[in-house]
Nucleic acid binder design. Structure first.
Length: 497
RNA sequence: GGCCCCAUCGUCUAGAGGCCUAGGACACCUGGUUUUCAUCCAGGCGACACGAGUUCGAAUCUCGUUGGGGCUACCA
């Protein structure tokens, strides 16, 4: 049997470092066994996915050197490799209909509102929160009439009500055991007619001849559903293997608020793909001879799925930097020079337009650009206190602004550019400067008065750059970047203690 | 809350009953090289979460406790 593995990222936002990690594992496994590595795009959520994100995934994988044998932009004989295209072919609906016909799935007409009420009740009663299978016993003929009449519906899987599910994951000591009664009747086909992940992935893995599914452990809980679907659809299930999740320093699942998760960032920052990959290869996994620096070829040679450690590793940028230094310093002079030039040029292109007006001669550029690329800036306390305010006021303003920034970048699909930052701060001011219509205390009124553009913008400017005079604030923040901006706002607050 | 997963230095890991007074790497500290810094070299600090078993013997097996994490969507 030829090994066929895949990664199936969802094209939402920037290409993720987790995709690179799982990609590396799958790639190595495939290459080690002389198998195929496939890329499939899972874009069944029409509201969150975008073509540009998909393109960024292709680019990133190529940049890393994790070349795939089959995929959207390289073809293959099991395509198409983009699920939205497969939806149009009616692939998933066919299987959903099959399940309905077999009595293994059913139509459900519960509205979002109805389900919300159900959950609220369950929460209040302290019951487990899950779909209560209210349409499970609904008459099929009746349901078909309602479907034909155009009423919105979803198709749900009819999972067993009792018994246990047992599956052995080769990386776990104990078999995975779950009671079927805890597994709810998951939606397979959404009301927009598109499949959910569960249906789409199982169907595609089968159709694409996938033999092993190596994925993150966040999927472990839905394993029963996937095995069950394979069974009911008459497929031979691939072997499912769950590896640990990459973590932040606080052990929570890696997130862009606490770590650079975008592959674009690493690339733009000048990290070498070899170094990133090498670093990733050291997470949850090690070279049998204890060597720490090795390349993809070597990785493919020694990779052993059974030696993976499933405890989620903390993603430690310091170690990446160390490895990166090793690789960078052994570059020949020409390549090293090219790397530096590339980095400088990127920054230059970005900064020049906003600095130009403030320059009198070319030499001014370096000095004026300093706050943009410096690791940290020095704050003068007196600059950080807007006229008429005291230390504590300034700190409070900064704290709220920083919180708003953090929430902004933590949310899905947001970008760190000038227009959205301006909107963010203006909205914040609008909100904070509201005085309760009745019964406002003098303190509340005073606090609201402090929320002016003059105060906040000036304060954020100094906090982010260490200077009173800068190019327009939002361009400046955008150019500095989210991580650094937030960090500097934090540093400014410390200074105000 | 419910269900599931996990547990060796701060971090990444080696370790599959005696080779372990637990090895390596990053970070940190000290010294050397370097006009300085970085690199490089030498050294140091530093962990088997806890408690019961099983065994002649446990980091390694079992159970419990604790801790951490994930899932709990018409997102993946």
């Amino acid at each position: 049997m030829t090994v066929r593995v895949r990664i199936a990222p969802s094209p939402t936002g920037d290409p993720h470092v987790g995709t690179a990690y799982i990609g590396l594992l799958n790639w190595s496994f495939a290459k080690h066994h002389g198998g195929k590595f496939i890329l499939r795009i899972e874009d069944t959520d029409q509201t969150r996915c975008s073509e540009s994100s998909a393109q960024a995934i292709y680019d990133s994988m190529k940049w890393l050197g994790l070349t795939y044998d089959e995929g959207p932009d390289v073809g293959g004989d099991r395509g198409p490799y983009v699920q939205s295209e497969r939806v149009k072919l009616g692939i998933y609906r066919k299987y959903a209909d099959q399940l309905i016909a077999q009595g293994d799935a059913y139509y459900c007409f519960a509205t979002a509102r109805e389900l919300e009420a159900m959950k609220a009740r369950q929460r209040a009663a302290n019951e487990p929160i899950m779909y209560d299978r209210r349409y499970r016993g609904f008459d099929l003929e009746e349901a078909k009439k309602r479907v034909a009449s155009g009423e919105p519906y979803v198709i749900r899987m009819k999972t067993p009500l009792e018994g246990e599910f047992v599956y052995r994951d080769r990386l776990r000591k104990q078999p995975v055991v779950k009671g079927w009664k805890e597994i709810d009747d998951q939606v397979l086909l959404k009301s927009d007619g598109w499949p959910t992940y569960h249906l789409a992935a199982v169907v595609d893995d089968h159709l694409m001849g996938i033999t092993h599914v190596i994925r993150a452990e966040e999927w472990l809980n839905s394993l029963p559903k996937h095995i069950w679907l394979n069974e009911k659809l008459g497929f031979t299930a691939p072997e499912y293997v769950h590896v640990g999740l990459l973590r932040n320093a606080d052990k929570s699942k890696i997130s862009k608020r606490k770590n650079p998760t975008s592959l674009l960032w690493y690339r733009q920052q000048g990290f070498l793909p070899e170094a990133l990959l090498n670093f990733l290869a050291l997470l949850g996994h090690s070279h049998p001879d204890g060597i720490e620096k090795f390349d993809l070829t070597e990785m493919a040679r020694f990779f052993d799925l059974d030696r993976i450690n499933v405890a989620g590793p903390v993603f430690d940028l310091a170690k990446l930097r160390h490895l990166q230094g090793l690789y960078f310093r052994e570059l020949d002079a020409e390549r090293a020079k090219a790397e530096v030039l590339k980095a400088v040029e990127t920054r230059f292109e970005q900064l020049f337009p906003i600095l130009r007006e403030r320059m009198a001669c070319g030499g001014d550029f370096l000095a004026q650009a300093e706050p943009y690329y410096a690791d940290a800036v020095t704050h003068h306390v007196e600059d950080l206190i807007p006229k008429g305010l005291v230390k504590e006021d300034a700190r409070a303003l900064l704290e709220d602004a920083q919180r708003a920034f953090k929430q902004h970048i933590a949310a899905d699909g947001t970008v760190w550019d000038a227009p959205s930052l301006e909107k963010l701060l203006r909205d914040l001011i609008a909100e904070k400067s509201q005085v309760p219509p009745i019964g406002a205390t003098p303190e509340q009124e005073a606090a609201a008065k402090r929320w002016t553009t003059k105060n906040l913008f000036g304060l954020v400017r100094v906090a982010a750059t260490g200077r009173r005079e800068t190019p327009p604030l939002f361009d400046t923040l955008a150019a500095i970047g989210a991580m650094k901006s937030i960090e500097r706002l934090g540093a400014a607050q410390m200074k105000l203690r």
